[in-house]
Design a protein around this nucleic acid. Sequence first.
RNA 1: UGCCCGAUAGUAUAAAGGUAGUACGACAGAUUUUGGUUCUGUUUGUCGAGGUUCGAAUCCUCGUCGGGCAACCA
Length: 559
Amino acid sequence: MTTGTKDSPEKSLNFLEEIIEADLRSGKYHSILTRFPPEPNGYLHIGHSKSICLNFGLAIKYGGKTNLRFDDTNPVTEETEYVESIKEDIRWLGFEWANELYASDYFDILFDYAVDLIRRGLAYVDDSSSDEIAELKGTPTTPGSRSQYASRSIEENLHLFIAMRDGKFGDGQKVLRAKIDMTSSNMHLRDPIMYRIKHAEHHRTGKKWCIYPLYDFAHGQSDSIEKVTHSICTLEFVTHRPLYDWFIEKLEIFASRQFEFARLNLSFTVMSKRKLLQLVQEKYVGGWDDPRMPTISGYRRRGYTPESIRTFAEKVGVQKRDNLIDVSLLEFCIREHLNKIALRKMVIFDPLKIVITNFSDDVEFLSSEDNPEDPGTGRREIPFSRELFIEREDFSENPPKKFFRLSLGQKVRLKSAYIIQCDKVIKDENGKIVELLCSYLAESKSGSDISGLKVQGTLHWVSVKHAITAEVFLYDRLFRVEDPSNEEGDFKDYINPVSLHVVKAAYCEPSLRNARFGERYQFIRKGYFCLDRTSSEEKLIFNRTVTLKDTWAKEAKKQ
RNA sequence: UGCCCGAUAGUAUAAAGGUAGUACGACAGAUUUUGGUUCUGUUUGUCGAGGUUCGAAUCCUCGUCGGGCAACCA
């Protein structure tokens, strides 16, 4: 099944699009409603963005709507802080929900549904302890058997369930179970628990309830109440689907349907909320929005754009097979976008002073394009003077093969300025290079070069006198191995010990004094950067979003 | 040992019985005042064995491998 015209290349439909188009074509639905159902017990990560782009994207594509529904049935792990962060992240990604809803909005209806099931002999109150329940449940290969309490009368069950609601029992003393089949090969059908007692305060309903429904008794019915047409979730819920359908069928309510896709995994990181929470709590990172975290807030702070993440979600596709996406695809997406929009700047991380011996003591302002990829952007004036900083690694006394940078007696171009030549190397008593004496070719000025010379390398530079300083955070991948969750032992043993490198004082061209939050920069030959949220006028702080592709690093490694 | 999913280049993802294609990566070259960008080219794949068919990645059978399922989590 494909769409597209001669003008646009044919794009095949993913399996969800095929299902939706079939449902629309057959007249089963006239419009679709999806939902994004996060549990407010942690921050959203890049894996969620796949689900968000899917649920919202499908609705947009087919003219439907998407609800944001917080799956808040477990009061002890859920907090308002997470609700707020989740909303912010979804909006930042560029999506707007039709309704902001909560599973807890339905606690009254759900209670009535449970009573209905009891009345029809399809649910019972069980006094067994959690150990006893587990014991009688059997195992995937051996059938379970029913609890002695399963034979209570409807009246007794009703009475007991209401007493549960009214707080007559302590936590764990009783549960309400669906009466299905203790011998089912599907463990979820072995009389699943519908309600448990938790004398806990809920972030929305406060102290109103002391019994709370479990996921299986809340999710499908919530979908049904909202008339969600396509309830899209991840693969681990496949085995829950018969139960999802069972409740809907027995309750005789709107038949939402569940479809499952494979969750996103990214190389060199972890994607489980539990593990991410551990990284935060045990201070391996600075917080949920640490730029090394695979959270949406982490990527945002690091300088990723919503566009790039949406493109990424589009490119990884949707399927039902397990996957481990190469992080280089994400990096490709952000580089592709930033290359188009980032303002070019020159910044020196590890300065080496050079003196242009034949240049006057004056300042000359040189013009440079803000973004060669976008003719719509302007140019800026950069001060050039007798004393400059270049990157220390851009000079070599014993240049390796194919070294196109500066060395004694060799010429290079200074970006948007002149061709220079290194005449003399000055060292201190320890032999460390402290300064280079160079000369420039006045007739080689950028834009009006009449020198006729061709040089192989172009370096970035800043004027010593005019440079401003900034702190720069350079990030590397958080883990040393591709799939930390799949390694022997604790995933934390595979954390990259040098995932953060801080440049205390980087020397920036003066125009960066006006750096703005949210604006993206390319530090020429270094990478893409943005202001960190902790940056201030007194102290500029930049985060490196991603490096530029560096083919020289590869070449140098080979040598 | 039971049930349910799944298996196409290194990683993802198309091909709905009819030429195995695309992206990322890797490699090579061209262009380049960013060793960036852009452009060109190359490389590598249908898990295995049978069967149906003129023809199978696709349908059937049996294997193999990977994942999920035994929370009062979602």
